[in-house]
Design a protein around this nucleic acid. Structure first.
Lengths: 251, 251
DNA sequence: CGGGGGTTTGACGAACGTCAATCGGGGTGG
DNA sequence: CCACCCCGATTGACGTTCGTCAAACCCCCG
C-alpha cells in the first residue's frame, strides 16, 4: 500500500477506494466543474503535484504565502473555518475529495477563512505558471476558478439558510443531503451509504449547535428511521422523508 | 423636490442628503471598490442609467433576464434574500447606497438569492457594452466585479459566524457595527448616528430570530446604554463596549 | 488491563419562539 | 382640526429548543 493509498484508508475501508482513485477524483471533479475537454484534463493532470497532510493541519488560508497555487483535495475531508477570539469555532463548509481548497486570487483565497484538514488528506497543487506550459494553463484557470467560486458561493448561501431558519433536526437533514449529493458526484456514495468521518464536535461547529445537541439530533433521525449510522458511514434509509424534512415541505 | 430626491427622503430627513448625493454615492463607492482613476470614474458616471423602484420590488435576481447589466444601488435600502417553500425568509445581507446589486455573470448574478427593495430605491445600471464605448468598459468591469464579489464574500462569511456562533445580543451588536462601517464609507454616518430604515421583521429574518426577540434584544442594547434609537435612526452610545460585545471580547 | 478520545445520557437552566393582546405614531377621510 | 385606522412596535405568558455541566459509557489501542 503506497503512501497515497494509506491516506485514503477511510475510503478503502468501505470498499470504495478502487472507484474513488481509479479514474481519478481530480479528473472526475474537474470535468464537472467546467466541462473541460480531454486534452485540457490531460494537461492539468500532468501539472498536478501531490502533498500529504495530517489531520488538523492548515492546508489553505491567509498564512500560506502569497504565491499560493490552485489547490484541490484528492482524498480525506477538510473544512473552511474561522475561530473567534474567545475560542468559539464556526465551520463554513466541509471539503471532500475533488473540491477546490484555494485559488491564487479571488474569494477562495480567503483571508476570511482557513482551511483545516479534518482527517489525513492528500492535496494536489496546480502551479500558476510552469516552465513547460507557460501559457495554456491560463484559460483553464479562469474556467476552473470561476466554477469553483460559483459552487462555493451556492454552498455558503445554503449554509446561511440552514443556520438562520432551520431547527436542529432540519439542519442536520439538510447537511447530510448536501454531503450525499456532493459525494455522489465523485463516486463516493455506495448505494444509499456514504462515508462521513466527522466528529460530532465538527458537525456542531458547522451547524451552530453544541456537541450534545448534535448527538441528540442524530439520535432523533435514527429513531425516525430516516438514517442509520455505523462507524464512520451514514446510510439514508428514507431519502424522500429526509428531503421533505430538510426542505420544510413536511409530509 | 425631484423624483430622485423624493426617493432619498429617508436620508434627506436627517440632513444628510446633500452629502450623500453631492459628490455621488456611486463615485464614492466605486473609488473605494477598486481604486479607479478619475477618468475611469468619469467614464462610468456617463454610462450610468437610473431607475426607480418602490419598496418590496424585485430589483435583481434570477427572474430579471439574461442580459442583466452591472447594477448599483444609489439610494434606499435593499436586501439579498431567499424564501423557503413554507414561507420562512432568510436575508443574506442588507444593501445600502453604493453597493453592487448584481453583475452580468458570476456569483453576484445570484441564482441563489433575490434582491428585494426594503425602501423606495434608485438604482444605476452600467450596460455591458455601449455603442459609444465598445471596449474600454471591459477592464473596469473586471475590476469592479471582482472587488464587489470579494466584499460580498466577506460579508457572507461574517454573517455565517453571526448566525452560527453568536447569541441574539451579539448578533445584533455585530450587525449594527457592520452597517455603521459600511454606511460610513459612503458618507451616511453623521457623528455616532446613522439611518436604519429596517423593520424589526427584516432584522429578524437576517439574524435568524423572531420579531419579538429582535424587539427585546434591541431593548437590552438600549438598557445597557450601548445604543439609542429614535425614529429610523440609530446612535451608537458606546462603540467600545458594543464592539467588545460583538467580538466576543467581553470587557 | 488500563487509558484516552469520542459518544451517550441525565438534569437543569438559559435562550428563544409563539400566541395574543396592547400600544403608539403617522396618515387619511370626514 | 379631529376621529379613526392601520401597520409596526411593544409587552406578557407560556412552551419549546438548545446549551451547559458532569458523569457514564464505549471502543480501539497500547
Amino acid at each position: 500500500m503506497d503512501r497515497l493509498a494509506e491516506a485514503t484508508s477511510g475510503v478503502a475501508e468501505i470498499g470504495l477506494m478502487a472507484r474513488a482513485s481509479g479514474m481519478g477524483v481530480l479528473a472526475q471533479r474537474l470535468s464537472q466543474l467546467s466541462l473541460l475537454s480531454q486534452s485540457e484534463l490531460g494537461t492539468l493532470q500532468k501539472l498536478e503535484k501531490r502533498k500529504e497532510h495530517e489531520a488538523d493541519a492548515l492546508i489553505a488560508g491567509d498564512s500560506l504565502g502569497v504565491q499560493a497555487p490552485l489547490r484541490f483535495l484528492l482524498s480525506g475531508w477538510a473544512c473552511r473555518q474561522r475561530v473567534m477570539p474567545d475560542g468559539r469555532r464556526q465551520i463554513f463548509g466541509f471539503l471532500i475529495p475533488g473540491d477546490v481548497l484555494g485559488t491564487p486570487s479571488g474569494p477562495l483565497t480567503s483571508a476570511f477563512a482557513s482551511v483545516v484538514a479534518l482527517t489525513a488528506v492528500v492535496t494536489a497543487d496546480i502551479p500558476l505558471s510552469d516552465d513547460k506550459h507557460p501559457n495554456n494553463a491560463s484559460s483553464l484557470y479562469s474556467k476552473l476558478i470561476a466554477a469553483a467560486e460559483h459552487e462555493t458561493e451556492k454552498l455558503l448561501y445554503d449554509h446561511i439558510v440552514r443556520l438562520g431558519r432551520m431547527n436542529g433536526l432540519e439542519r442536520m437533514a439538510h447537511l447530510l443531503l448536501e454531503l450525499r449529493r456532493r459525494l455522489s458526484r465523485v463516486g463516493l456514495v455506495n448505494g444509499q451509504s456514504f462515508p462521513m468521518p466527522l466528529r460530532q464536535e465538527s458537525l456542531g461547529d458547522a451547524l451552530g449547535m453544541s456537541t450534545v445537541h448534535v448527538n441528540r439530533t442524530m439520535q432523533q433521525l435514527r429513531l425516525k428511521k430516516l438514517i442509520q449510522c455505523s462507524g464512520r458511514e451514514v446510510t439514508v434509509l428514507d431519502p424522500v422523508r429526509l428531503t421533505a424534512l430538510a426542505d420544510g415541505t413536511q409530509i
